[in-house]
Design a protein around this nucleic acid. Structure first.
Lengths: 213, 213
DNA sequence: AAAGCATAGTTAAAAAATTCACATGCTTCT
DNA sequence: AGAAGCATGTGAATTTTTTAACTATGCTTT
């Protein structure tokens, strides 16, 4: 089998292209060129073509790409031709926001359950969900076929939650706690760190002044 | 002047190192090696040293780095030796979560104001803040010296909000709407896209199965 | 039907980022 | 004081990623 490592940056961009195509489709646009995609998402046309080339040939020379088709292909590649059930652990403000965030549903994610071990939160309603005690995780993750977990607890609890998830069959974790999780090799994790991007901005604001000295 | 472009990945990691050092410091640890930092944040020791080398020599050969000092240096480099006033536009769930998120204060960010033009939201309290109508942005951004704006509105409103921010002196924008903003060259923007990382996970879950066919 | 045009796909070159390996220099121990 | 040990800092090598240039192909128009 042809084993071709796909750069993570390519996957990231694919996700962005995919969303952009969705938007074009909603606007009734049927055809798009690599240049237009590039312009729309802020990369180079060559980059767009190169990224897509990892996965096949999706366009028509001289014409461009069929929006609907390419959208479907990209979603398929990203594994979004199925619905993924998610479990969120942590029903604080962040957990709450994630639960009510609409962007997930649109992309085929379904938040199946929210957990917290704070007794003042357990039982509270978030949208159509009741906040569950952590003790219910094994049962629910099984019945809902949870393969992806989201950690929205403070640093101190994050590793413990991760371990618990993994013990219950979770294969991938999206971690909002700013800490590197220690996980077995077969488990995928990615961190979302809300202040990193902000600090890139402050770095650049400062660096620019330094440059002009 | 020595002009040395610093890779964005380096800045990203610097932010992560910085937070890790903060944590070590809170635990009373005074000295740390590149290897320990690397282990703690999940990169290679050489990477840590290389990243730091862009900015100077902060360690002692044979010993390592002084935690407190390196923490201060990294924060200084990131521009966090001052308090940054932020304005959030969008008081939906995400805006709310961002307002109440504690991680920002810790790193020297201060949320000075929240805006929304939904009349049902204006005037509501989020923490100590009243949600302001967008019309108040010019006045408040001036009096609070807002240089960084956060966009937490849906796609459709994002560009308009960005334009408005820029017209009022905002120099950097953190954008949570999944769309590429069109901004003048002197304005820095970064997007935070909550579903991209999730889609990297689903890609990897699927790709792994594909590999083992 | 043929020619021209536009854009995808591909290969090669360039640039960027990471890793490697070692020389350097501080600290400690004898 | 000297030697040994250890971890930094750095220049070179490697790998990865991006950019650019080129080629091929399908559509449209004449």
């Amino acid at each position: 089998m042809k084993t071709l490592r796909v750069p993570e940056a390519t996957v990231t961009r694919l996700s962005i292209y995919s969303r952009f195509l969705e938007r074009l489709d909603r606007h009734g646009i049927t055809t798009v060129s690599s240049g237009e995609i590039a312009e729309g998402v802020g990369v180079s046309p060559a980059q767009v073509r190169k990224d897509l080339a990892y996965f096949g040939e999706f366009g028509t020379r001289g014409v461009g790409y069929n929006v609907k088709d390419l959208m479907k292909y990209t979603m398929k590649i990203l594994g979004l031709d199925q619905t993924w059930s998610l479990a969120i652990v942590g029903a604080g403000n962040l957990g709450f926001a994630l639960c009510t965030y609409n962007g997930f549903n649109v992309r085929g994610f379904y938040i199946a359950a929210v957990f917290d071990n704070d007794p003042t939160k357990v039982g509270k309603k978030i949208g159509h969900l009741d906040v569950q005690p952590l003790a219910n995780f094994p049962e629910i993750s099984k019945s809902e076929n949870i393969r992806i977990g989201i950690i929205a607890v403070p640093i101190r609890g994050a590793q413990e939650v991760a371990d618990m998830m993994i013990n219950n069959g979770v294969e991938a974790i999206l971690n909002f706690a700013p800490v590197a999780l220690n996980v077995p090799e077969h488990v995928e994790t990615r961190n979302v760190d809300l202040s990193v991007k902000l600090e890139i901005l402050t770095f650049n604001l400062g660096f620019r002044s330094a440059q002009s000295l």
